[in-house]
Nucleic acid binder design. Structure first.
Lengths: 153, 153
DNA sequence: TCGACGCTTGCTTACTTATGCATTATACAA
DNA sequence: TTGTATAATGCATAAGTAAGCAAGCGTCGA
């Protein structure tokens, strides 16, 4: 009767039938011999990252898409950029950042998460990121910032 | 200032940055001139089926990955764009479209399939598409069309 | 054996979201 | 215009979820 076993059962139940609240889930678990409180379920849901989706016909919980993997917190740009950065070039309103292998995705994601209005968007490959800026001057600001971040590593 | 427009803005905000509560979303909307109550947002979230996901670092909302595609081979741009679209910016002869997670590929494919001469090509990442147009005026036409499609969602 | 430490859980309460009801805006028909 | 039906929204509050705190347990090393 470990926490891990319980969470497996929870995943199974939620994947199998519609559940509309943690209280309802609690009862379903109780029927199977697991007697816990809503508090515990709230924590389990967090551990399992189970999504709660409101629909016209009521709330539904759903298990996250398969292999959700790592990404626990989210890294700040400043914290990862210095380690992954390789070099940077610019042209027009574009910035091309070269990174170490596999470094493009995480950096691009971190850039996106900043919500910087100078940045219209990013497209990341394996070790290259294309950053599309709003304008030439925006590109200048962004490039300058990235370079200064790189130096802090 | 229609409900539909507001919901589009909501989708954009949530696809673009982390939002931890409806109250927080309310403030973000207020900054942009949308003044509504939490009640309304609760209903909007239901209409949009926006998922609420608990994580070790706090609650996060996410726009659903549109089921779409699978139906009949290739989806038309009009049929999937409204659901996957988040926001759009332009610069020079480029258009940068931000989409919900995993939305870039299908949209880019749909755009390619149209064979529009105004579009030289597209490059899609995870949630960003770069559309390279033939000229500034071509870009204008394409952007206008996409925006009108977005509103039909 | 004893105590420090860490993990898990329940209790209770704070916080967040959903909803019944009433009101106002909008569209349409008579 | 007037009446009627819909839709959208706010208010107040119910329903549901998260989190602080402390208790209970097992582990480890002195």
């Amino acid at each position: 009767m470990t926490k891990r076993e319980r969470q497996t059962v929870i995943r199974e139940i939620i994947a199998t039938r519609p559940v509309g609240s943690q209280e309802e889930l609690r009862q379903l678990l109780a029927e199977r011999g697991w007697d816990v409180t809503q508090s515990t379920l709230s924590r389990d849901m967090r551990d399992l990252r189970i999504a709660r989706i409101p629909t016209p016909t009521g709330i539904r919980y759903t298990v996250p898409e398969a292999a959700s993997s790592s990404e626990d917190g989210r890294a700040t740009l400043a914290s990862i950029f210095p380690q992954l950065f390789a070099r940077l070039d610019v042209t027009g309103e574009l910035i091309v950042v070269r990174t170490v292998v596999a470094g493009a995705q995480p950096i691009a994601e971190a850039i996106d998460n900043e919500g910087n209005p100078d940045v219209l968007g990013t497209i990341a490959g394996e070790n290259t990121i294309l950053i599309i800026c709003r304008s030439d001057s925006a590109r200048e600001r962004v490039a300058k910032r990235l370079l200064s971040l790189a130096k802090k590593g």
